[in-house]
């Protein structure tokens, strides 16, 4: 049974059929929430809210796009709202990050594969990603964490393919620049510490 048929059943009153959709899209929604929020508890809560919100708005789903794109749009907007609220309270600057977490950043990239990443690393990765704007983080998460195609990203964000290309390129460039800045500052700190020890 495809998504449209399941939605039809739900509209006819078979609420329990919604469980199939939840099960089907759980990994994608949860994965996106985790990449954006970098906290499993927050991601779980956000993902639940997203599915409940999608259920409540199922009448508004006209079928112009696929259900997955529509659900993804709700997911993206919901996570963006949470991030904006968070960032109003706390803003991570690059220099603060270098000062506080310099050595940890080195460790993060020293691990051989993503499977080695522990909770601590996840929090650190979150801090590094927090140095980007919410929009940059959003588009990078869609492409890098979720592996969405450019066309899917364009449909989800409601923009053109060219806009996706441009935004993605800028976000990647910014991320690389931030990492280079962290790396450079950390190298300078290391040299200074070594010099102090030698003296």
């Amino acid at each position: 049974m495809n998504d449209s048929q399941v939605i039809e059943l739900i509209r006819k009153g078979q609420t329990e059929a919604y469980g199939d959709l939840v099960r089907q899209y759980h990994k994608r929604v949860m994965g996106y929430c985790f990449s954006m929020l970098s906290n499993r508890t927050d991601a779980d809560e956000a993902a639940q809210d997203i599915f409940v919100k999608a259920y409540q708005n199922l009448d508004k789903f006209k079928g112009d796009s696929s259900f997955s794109t529509w659900l993804y749009r709700i997911t993206a907007n919901h996570c963006l709202d949470i991030l904006r609220k968070r960032n109003r309270r706390k803003n991570v600057s690059l220099d603060n990050l270098v000062e506080q977490e310099g050595s940890q950043v080195q460790k993060l990239f020293a691990t051989s594969s993503s499977a080695d990443r522990h909770l601590e690393n996840a929090q650190l990765a979150h801090k590094i990603l927090s140095t980007l704007s919410e929009d940059q983080r959003q588009i990078l998460t869609m492409r890098e964490a979720e592996g969405l195609e450019y066309q899917e990203i364009a449909e989800t964000l409601g923009c053109s393919l060219d806009a996706v290309k441009g935004r993605l390129a800028r976000a990647r460039k910014q991320l690389q620049e931030n990492l280079r800045h962290i790396q450079k500052s950390w190298d300078v700190q290391n040299v200074e510490t070594k010099r102090e020890k030698d003296l």
């Binding site: 759980h26 949860m30 994965g31 996840a122 890098e144 964490a145």
Partner: peptide, 17 residues
Amino acid sequence: HLFAVPTFSEADEDIFT
């Protein structure tokens, strides 16, 4: 490294659903 997504078991899926 930055965008690694955790794995979810079937039990996680059931509880979540």
